[in-house]
Design a protein around this nucleic acid. Structure first.
Lengths: 187, 187
DNA sequence: TCATTATAACTAATGCCATTAGTTTTTCAA
DNA sequence: TTGAAAAACTAATGGCATTAGTTATAATGA
């Protein structure tokens, strides 16, 4: 009675990610997702265990994509050049994937090792770039937190439209980075 | 049959705000709110026009509270001292009111003048503090965006638990601010 | 090849939620 | 004191996530 349509987890995640990015996270419901996939919503449960689990999958997917973007952008680069490349890649990611970007920051189950690992890969990438500045352990912690704050703060506010007219947006971001870098160097 | 319980908009907003801060935004539903107020959920519609409208009221309430906190904190202060005072007040607000803090950043209807005004009061407050540094118009725009990015980025990441163990959190924040201030001074 | 088994789709049903319609009760002002 | 406006209510609707139970398809192994 029901022809198999060949649904799988990857299709589900990619379709949901596209919805989250183009139409907003809140529009991603199992009902709307099932409609887009030409399937009845209970069928999704053969591949995911529910909406919270789908969100977790999206978050994980986003972390992996973000890591790839950052890694590619910073390949073969070091110091200021690496910092700027990473910052640009980060901002670009948040612009192209506003939905899954926001999902990457959702607090996750502390027992979820896969999520932990995906997050820490990004942290290590940042850490490896900052290593070029020869900071001690404590300074490195502060530097990572500061860098992430700048990246997330700027991306998040821009994405929410909090900056109003998009005048000289790039300049604002680069000046902020410049300030951060000059402070790094003084350490 | 139904004794009037004396519900009003203020009670509704304050109760909802408390739920948002203590139990999370997603737990604020008209059903749960009505239960907490000992009322049936349709009764809420005599005071608000629905859940989206309640969220808007919460956002407005948050913006007003945040403005007050920042204004009080920076009274009679200027330059670095004012910046640090504002930053501390901002971070404190996001810690004490994580729910409504997040709601203050929700994109709002561009025709909603009351929301516009509540947002711009905060912007003007920041602007007035930065005026002490005698920046030109363009530099001021960049400086405001940078300051807001740092404040929001740090607050948001801390609130989401993205910094992991809360080791030397205050230090990280103040170092970041210090970097920002030294950059301001160089302009 | 064919029978068995697992899997992936389905329908039906439940319960929660937001919202609307329509009713009753209370308050308040003329 | 009476009548209108407001604030509560019940009942009903429709959408959603999720579960249970059913059927069809695919995959496996004799």
């Amino acid at each position: 009675m029901s022809p198999r349509v060949g649904l799988n987890l990857e299709m589900i995640i990619k379709t949901a990610a596209e919805m989250a990015d183009k139409e907003g996270i809140e529009t991603v419901t199992l009902a709307s997702l099932a409609r887009k996939l030409n399937v009845r919503s209970p069928s999704l449960f053969n591949h995911i265990s529910g909406l919270p689990n789908l969100k977790r999958e999206l978050s994980l997917y986003g972390l992996k994509l973000l890591y790839e973007s950052l890694a590619v952008a910073t390949e073969e680069k070091e110091k200021d050049e690496a910092i700027i490349a990473m910052a640009n890649a980060y901002l670009l990611f948040s612009r192209e994937h506003p939905g899954i970007y926001e999902l990457t920051l959702r607090a996750h189950d502390p027992n979820d090792q896969e999520m932990d690992q995906a997050s820490s890969r990004i942290l290590h990438l940042i850490s490896s770039i900052l290593a070029d500045y020869h900071l001690n352990d404590e300074e490195t912690i502060h530097a990572i937190r500061g860098f992430r704050s700048i990246l997330h703060g700027y991306s998040s506010l821009e994405q929410k439209g909090a900056f109003g007219m998009p005048v000289k947006l790039e300049d604002s971001f680069h000046l902020l980075l410049e300030g951060y870098i000059s402070f790094l160097r003084k350490k």
